[in-house]
Nucleic acid binder design. Structure first.
Lengths: 338, 338
DNA sequence: GTCTTGCTTGTAACCGGTTACGTCTGCACA
DNA sequence: TGTGCAGACGTAACCGGTTACAAGCAAGAC
């Protein structure tokens, strides 16, 4: 009985005078269904307004048609681009994307477990999930780690260390800066940890010492503003600030000039990520271009490819490490082309 | 048989020597199950590592245990706060949140339809979904509109028009500004449309005309930077800029000083939303505090309450309009307490 | 005319929970 | 001892698709 709800396969089958198997075959474009029958079924679907139930097919296929993405937070253009990259691939495959921001949750570990129960695969940003939990989950379903390193997993990342080394060297060699300071968390996020390491590499190579401990607050714009205020209050401004990401750099850019510090005249600034705003702020921001969108889409492709595999007992993905290229973008904030 | 996959109710039932019904009752804390049996079942669950399948219970309950959120984009702290608000309520109810950014998708309408098929209810940001589509979806499942108006739906919003009127009046009355210009899209987003209307209200009340057309680019930080560059290039700076939101204001703040324009000395700036960064940037940003988190949590509560209702044929939610309070926050960027 | 062969279509079991209804047990009471 | 009743638990149907296998049928080979 069509009852009160949506039509089901059986309704369509009855209406078209065929069996449910045939209806199912038509929805899957199975070529064995002959022209006449096929048209009749399609007409019935149209007439009844039939759409396959996600719930029903999910059970039958043992698949959620959902991809999980675990990020520290939801704010910020970096994550927006990452999600967009993942979603563009997922949409293609008729898969929904479920995002989890762990920093928003007091019960992050529980939340990740929950997410794992309702998705077919996970994309995890480095630093959001403890390694052991990550390993345990990877036993059960495909996991790809983004912007992080792990010997037993599939990882998609950039070589942040080398890029940061190069950019820092530019400040030293091209602009003669000798007192450099790092802004941004240096642990927790493998991504920024690598950048900090590259920063130190370059200083060591030039025989310089850090001009003070890294200014550690967080990785969002507002922490850049806090860092700027702290530096200004301390009174001992370095020649250049190397920010862990562009967001922090923007926070600095929206604060220091208001406090009477000119950029790059009094202090040079560089960021990391090359967000859209980097080319528009004033001064324009020197940074490292990262293929964030591609990071997301590549990760999604790897996960989805794995979910498509046979229905046999799940086997963890063989480890793999994909390193996507970066490119330094020299603009005004470091002192170039002012 | 236990086969290769996860244990099912039948596995637990066999292991505990009871029926599947009893197992199901135990997972639901049904008090009719007696102590001894109950303990035995719990022990078996523990022993087998049983977790109910989301797929199976979803089918039986006809529920996805998922809440959909439709936003224009994913970037930006405003949406992050909104999602966080919704997620905090959803997590409580064991419901996942599925976010869709329509501006990222060329096939937004299709995507919304898809989302509606896999969620139990929808939270929709005003301006993202055409009114007729919204109405059609509301016939099928609970929908709450956030930051928008609609006579037939449940809406959760703030009175942006009144707030913008008040803030604009402050610029005119307290600081004597007479040449004011609006920055931000004035259509598409009902939210910013209302703010623009309030801006005009205040000017009209003061007998002033707008100092030029609104600078329309978009609603993200980078468009604020573009607006700043455009204004600077035009050379005819107004006394004050009223930005449609804080993000735009930050874009301006990260650009104008670098171009030699002091804030608020040369031009005053106000925003809207009171993001975290507003109190930290320099100058600190005068804005309107909005309970964005509450907007999200309230919307989620309304949707979830509706999904919990009987399994009888779905009836659209009765229209309702919830207006949450706002509060002006006067800081340095308008010229106050400099 | 019978037997293959090959193609289209149908039957029914299954995915993993949920739950209406029925059964069984034990106890109180007549 | 028989009857009624309530509480604890089991049976089996169902949610809406999918699919292995079987069945039906027509055309071609002999």
């Amino acid at each position: 009985m069509a009852g009160t709800g949506r039509p089901t396969v059986r309704d369509v089958a009855r209406h078209a005078g065929v069996s449910v198997a045939t209806v199912s075959r038509v929805t899957h474009d199975d070529p064995v269904v002959t022209g006449g029958t096929r048209d009749r079924v399609l007409a019935s679907m149209q007439a009844l307004g039939y759409t396959p139930s996600v719930l029903g097919s999910g059970l039958a296929y043992q698949r959620h048609h959902t991809l999980g993405v675990v990020l520290p937070g939801l704010g910020g253009p970096y994550f927006a681009a990452l999600i967009q990259g993942a979603e563009s691939v997922a949409a293609e495959a008729g898969v929904a994307v479920n995002v989890l921001g762990t920093h928003l949750r007091h019960d992050a570990v529980q939340a990740v477990h929950q997410l794992a129960l309702r998705t077919d695969g996970l994309i995890v940003q480095g630093g959001t999930v403890p390694d052991d939990l990550l390993g345990a989950i990877a036993e059960k379903l495909p996991v790809v780690l983004v912007a992080g390193e792990h010997p037993d997993l599939v990882t998609v990342r950039t070589d942040g260390r080398a890029a940061a080394r190069g950019l820092t060297a530019h400040l030293v060699e091209a602009h003669g800066h000798r007192r450099l300071r790092f802004v941004g968390a240096t642990h927790g996020s493998p991504d920024t940890t690598a950048r900090y390491a590259g920063f130190r590499d370059a200083l060591a190579a030039a025989g310089l010492a850090e001009h003070g401990e890294p200014v550690r607050h967080g990785l969002e714009a507002r922490y850049g503003a806090m860092a700027a205020r702290q530096l200004h209050a301390e009174g001992d401004l370095p020649d250049a600030l190397v920010c862990a990401n562009d967001e922090l750099a923007f926070g600095v850019l929206a604060t220091l000039p208001g406090l009477g510090v000119a950029i790059p005249r009094d202090v040079a600034i560089v960021g990391f990520d090359d967000l859209d705003l980097a080319a528009l702020a004033s001064p324009t921001l020197t940074t490292v271009h990262q293929p964030v969108h591609d990071l997301g889409s590549t990760a999604a492709e790897l996960v989805l490819a794995a979910t498509r595999r046979s229905r046999e007992p799940f086997a963890p993905l063989p480890p793999d490490d994909r390193v996507l290229p970066t490119r330094p973008v020299l603009r005004e904030s470091c002192g170039c082309s002012t």
